[in-house]
Simulated scan of single mutants.
Amino acid sequence: MAETNIESLIRSLVTPLLKHPQALSITQHSDGRYHRYIIDTDPSDVGRLIGRQGHVAAALRTVVEGSQSRRANSKRVRLLINDHRH
């Protein structure tokens, strides 16, 4: 089975939600346990990514984490939305 390109998956899921898709940037950081993908976008679009009570963010995390292969030695994927308000 082919490996999923997580960054392109995130970009394809997030871009239709944004009013300013040109401001989207995704950075990856890896440590011992996780591959962290940090989403930065225009401050006015942050609420669109989080959604009411975090429902949109939870759905994005579910899809991204579910796309990962289930090998025992693979790192877990974490999706973080940079909230510029805090």
Rank of each mutant, 00 (worst) to 15 (best):
I6D: 04
H35V: 05
N5L: 02
Q22R: 12
I26G: 00
T41S: 06
I10K: 02
L80V: 07
V64I: 09
R36C: 02
L17Q: 02
D83M: 05
L49K: 14
I39K: 09
G54N: 02
I26L: 05
G51R: 04
L80K: 11
E3D: 12
Q22V: 05
S69H: 11
V56K: 03
R61F: 09
E3P: 08
S67W: 11
S25M: 07
H35T: 02
R36I: 07
S44F: 15
H86K: 15
L9G: 06
R71H: 12
A58I: 01
R76I: 00
I39R: 09
L79C: 05
E65P: 02
T41L: 13
S8K: 13
R70H: 00
H84R: 13
A2L: 05
N73D: 13
K19A: 02
R48L: 14
K75P: 10
V63Q: 05
M1P: 10
P43Q: 05
R78G: 02
H84W: 12
R48E: 00
P21C: 04
T15R: 14
D31V: 09
Q22P: 12
H84E: 14
A72L: 08
D40C: 03
R11E: 11
R76L: 01
H86F: 10
H20E: 15
V63R: 06
R61G: 06
T27F: 12
Q68S: 13
Q53L: 01
V63K: 07
T62R: 14
I6K: 12
H29P: 00
G32A: 13
I26D: 00
K75R: 15
P21W: 12
S67D: 04
H84N: 14
P16Y: 01
Y34P: 06
G66E: 08
Q28R: 15
E65R: 14
A2V: 04
T62V: 01
S25Y: 06
S12M: 09
V77R: 10
R71A: 14
P16S: 00
P21F: 05
V63M: 04
Q68K: 15
I10N: 01
Q28G: 09
R78M: 02
H86M: 13
H35C: 10
I38P: 11
R76M: 04
N5H: 10
L18R: 08
N73Y: 12
T41A: 06
E65L: 00
Q28T: 06
D45T: 09
S69G: 13
V63N: 01
G32D: 11
H55I: 10
R85T: 08
H29N: 01
I39H: 08
S25F: 08
D40G: 02
A59L: 08
R33S: 08
V14L: 10
L17T: 05
D42V: 12
V77H: 10
